[in-house]
Design a binder for these strands. Structure first.
Lengths: 147, 147
DNA sequence: GTTAATGCAAATGTTTTGCAGTATA
DNA sequence: TATACTGCAAAACATTTGCATTAAC
């Protein structure tokens, strides 16, 4: 098991520092994650990675997503579907707004969540490590079409 | 708190109104959901229901959870585990606080989410139908033990 | 040279589905 | 009586794991 707390630096530095090997697959996966920018599931990432390295396996994708998550390089989201979505961590904190009709995902800043986190943590004596706000509804073009 | 009698009536009415048959299994499942109050997954609900009706099948549980969800009788949550959690809808709106160590789920009121909903909806021209706030961390007894 | 990481295939765990029998309206 | 609902078993999914091989250190 890996014993790591959140760290700063390039992905490569983080791998080095936590004595994880810098393999071609890991480099490729991190690159794909960053390129896709948005939100991908394991299978989508696998399909994209296969275009560059046709021998990469799906279990490697899953294994490394777990690792990246532990190292704080990606965030895992549980949207309404059955499978998980992953997102390369950018510096900026944000929350998600989802269109239930077309599946569009919009990111929005939510500074209020910090106050909320503090208040609720104090109130229930929880040591809170993460806050996720998810709103669902119809995006502009979908609720226009509906009329 | 939950008003059992009132809900029993309305659940039945809702089934009737949407021309769904009121079967023994559906009645039992709704009763179990209401009794358990909190958050159960399909398998937990199945195990509880089997104590009263040993012939009920897991597929019936899944099929009816889908139906109840569609009818608005239960809410489906995607916590960090692989499986979904279901919760009988009570009148009171609340959000969730989860302990990543022991799995405890705490409900908390979050009136701020209404303002947030309005603000974000206006800003991105979304017709927002739901807001979910989920906080994760260590509960009081788990972060005490860790030291 | 050691040992962690990979690819493959098989296993796991959850949820869904086809179908014949059963019970509700 | 007609047909929606159920139970069962099998299928379909996403995800994980065991193991021999490969590659990073």
């Amino acid at each position: 098991m890996v014993n790591v707390i959140k760290q700063k630096g390039s992905a490569r530095q983080i791998l080095d520092r936590s004595s994880q090997r810098v393999t071609a697959q890991r480099t490729l996966l991190l690159e794909m994650l960053r390129q896709s920018g948005g939100h991908v599931d394991a299978d989508e990432l696998y399909r994209r990675a296969r275009k560059k390295n046709s021998r990469i396996s799906l279990s490697t994708v899953y294994r490394n997503l777990q690792l990246f998550k532990k190292l704080g390089l990606v965030e895992e989201h549980h949207f309404d579907e059955e499978h998980h979505h992953y997102e390369a961590k950018s510096g900026t904190e944000h929350q998600h707004l989802l269109c239930v009709n077309c599946g569009k995902v919009v990111e929005f800043a939510c500074p209020v969540s910090w106050k909320l986190r503090e208040d609720i943590g104090k109130q229930y004596d929880f040591d809170i490590t993460g806050v996720e706000v998810r709103m669902t509804g119809l995006c502009s073009s979908c609720h226009t079409k509906e009329k």
